[in-house]
Design a protein around this nucleic acid. Structure first.
Lengths: 206, 206
DNA sequence: TGCGGCATGGGACCAAAGTCCCATGGACCA
DNA sequence: TGGTCCATGGGACTTTGGTCCCATGCCGCA
């Protein structure tokens, strides 16, 4: 068996459900890891879990939708699939608005569930790659001195060296020095690249 | 009353529902326009409707979810809110996955519905503004000659004039000529701006 | 108290980009 | 068959950008 690092976090208070889900997932070559309570799941969850989660909606203690919110507020981007015996429309709508990838009702067809899981894993991979790049850029940005950052802002705003110099009240010569260091520290080989880095680091939903 | 150009398209086969929705929306200062069938709605719908739609799920002839898909396939970005008497979980999930802004069940609280409508209108405004910019950029792109477009690709890829010249098998002089025309036709005052235009025109969900 | 990081710049260049005017030749079209 | 658009490019610059070496002064920390 390959170890991908990606796991499917199953959170359900019913041991039977956990067991059958685990079996199904394993048979599809996936790596399930089951939790009997949201609390236990949250305790175990590392900083950057890779994979996706299958949550029950109704659980004693912490509601599945509340758990979803808790994950979001902790900055987790783990894709979530809900699986429930008796879901109602408002709950499903709330879950989907909250970013759930799917909301399935039992009994669920094995292939339907596995498809949802595979899609969620794909979303997670893309998301983690995108966050990784973003983090890398932010790390480089953090290595800039305040002045270098100001100069970089001018550059990505498309301003000329002389304009940046007058904006900051310094000589064009000094702007060139800072600009050169910005390109080096940001590992950018062109202004085009620098502009893209600046834009990716700033806005965008990760 | 102000005429914003934004309308709330109500599609429901029940005259009573249409009437009461229209009254509610009007009382909130909005401009409802009601249709008794999806077909009638589609016939009337212009190219770039501004506003949002409130669709019934179960209608004779064309299902609300099918209507949503039809809108999407026609390239419409009109935000959709579903309103239904007896929705089920799978339908609500399908609707939300299909991009619906909300999926409400009757009886619905007036304020809940109005809030959903106001949010949808806000989304529509932002979306139209973004599409407007994008369309403007694409219009400019379309005015480029094939050669100019090739040169532009090189520029936004961060390549030097001499590199672009050798890529295209022409002289650096000619690249400069094309490049100058690209900046003029695209109305870009800097490479940074050109890079952003290229990126906005290419990817991104509108 | 001395060393390193930061910000500041002059001098001296070289490379890259941008801008004039000019010209040639092909394609297409009325 | 002459006009328009497109692509090509030379000549001759000017402006920007980028890179050396060098130096000064401040601040904080070991």
């Amino acid at each position: 068996m390959s170890f991908s690092g990606e796991r499917v976090f199953v959170v359900d208070d019913d041991p039977g459900v956990r067991k059958s889900l685990a079996r199904l997932l394993r048979s599809a070559g996936l790596e399930p890891i089951a939790f009997e309570s949201p609390q236990e799941f949250l305790r175990t969850l590392g900083a950057e879990p890779a994979g996706c989660a299958i949550l029950d909606v109704t659980m004693p203690g912490l509601d599945g939708l509340t758990l979803q919110r808790e994950l979001t507020s902790r900055g987790s981007e783990l894709p979530v699939i809900f699986l429930t015996g008796h879901g109602d429309v408002p709950k499903s709508v709330q879950a989907m608005k909250g970013g759930a990838k799917d909301f399935l009702t039992k009994p669920v067809d094995d292939e339907v569930l596995l498809d949802a899981v595979r899609r969620a894993l794909e979303v997670d991979r893309a998301g983690r790659e995108s966050r990784r790049e973003r983090t890398e850029i932010q790390k480089r940005l953090a290595a800039l001195t305040p002045r270098e950052r100001e100069v970089m802002e001018g550059v990505v705003a498309g301003r000329l060296n002389k304009q940046i110099a007058s904006d900051l009240g310094i000589s064009e010569k000094t702007v060139k020095v800072h600009r050169g260091r910005v390109m080096e520290k940001m590992a950018a080989s062109s202004v085009a690249e620098l502009v893209r880095m600046a834009d990716r680091a700033a806005l965008r939903r990760p």
